[in-house]
């Protein structure tokens, strides 16, 4: 929780840049998630990624649950499960904030698919794993810190 708050504070300048972009009409806050531009996957750093995804600063939500390890066994395979209990959840994006390109994957749901996704991601460094949920045209977010260590053993 504290890690999240720290990050929000740290990210304040980035969020500001996004707000400026919105004000300047460069990006629009409402968007269809499935249409995430491919460029968002190549964007470096959180601020540029959020911008490329066309996301204004999403609201923190307690209705998003991220199941991810406290300490990753192996940064190459980090199990991440996101559940959104926000009504009308239509999309979930997963970001590893300190990865060179933070956006890992995003998913959109229809035809009875629940606001749930389970996958495995690569993490270069200890960082927040962030979920961004789209529901009813609005975006919400939650994050969980996952520590990545360089390990050698295993048997």
């Amino acid at each position: 929780m504290n890690a999240l708050r720290r990050n929000v504070l740290k990210g304040a300048t980035g969020a500001g840049a996004v707000a400026v972009a919105v004000a300047a009409g460069l990006i629009t806050p409402a968007r269809v998630l499935a249409a995430t531009p491919r460029s968002a996957f190549d964007a470096k750093g959180m601020a540029d990624t959020m911008k490329a995804m066309g996301l204004a600063a999403p609201a923190d939500s307690k209705d998003i649950t991220i199941k991810a390890p406290d300490i990753a066994e192996n940064g190459a395979v980090v199990p991440v499960e996101v559940t959104s209990s926000i009504a009308g959840t239509s999309g979930i994006a997963i970001l590893a904030e300190k990865n060179a390109s933070p956006l890992v994957a995003d998913f959109s749901f229809q035809g009875g698919a629940q606001g749930f996704i389970s996958t495995r991601i690569k993490m270069a460094n200890t960082s927040l794993v962030r979920a961004v949920v789209t529901a009813g045209g609005k975006t919400y977010t939650a994050a969980k810190e996952v520590k990545v260590t360089i390990g050698g053993c295993g048997g």
Partner: peptide, 28 residues
């Protein structure tokens, strides 16, 4: 499911080798 799209995803190299996906569909 039965020809009706339930999930669309975009991903890149940040997903682990041999990608795993789990999802849930109501009404199936």
């Amino acid at each position: 499911i039965n020809g009706n799209t339930v999930l669309e995803g975009n991903m890149a190299g940040g997903v682990s080798k041999n990608p795993y996906l789990g999802f849930k569909v109501k009404g199936a």
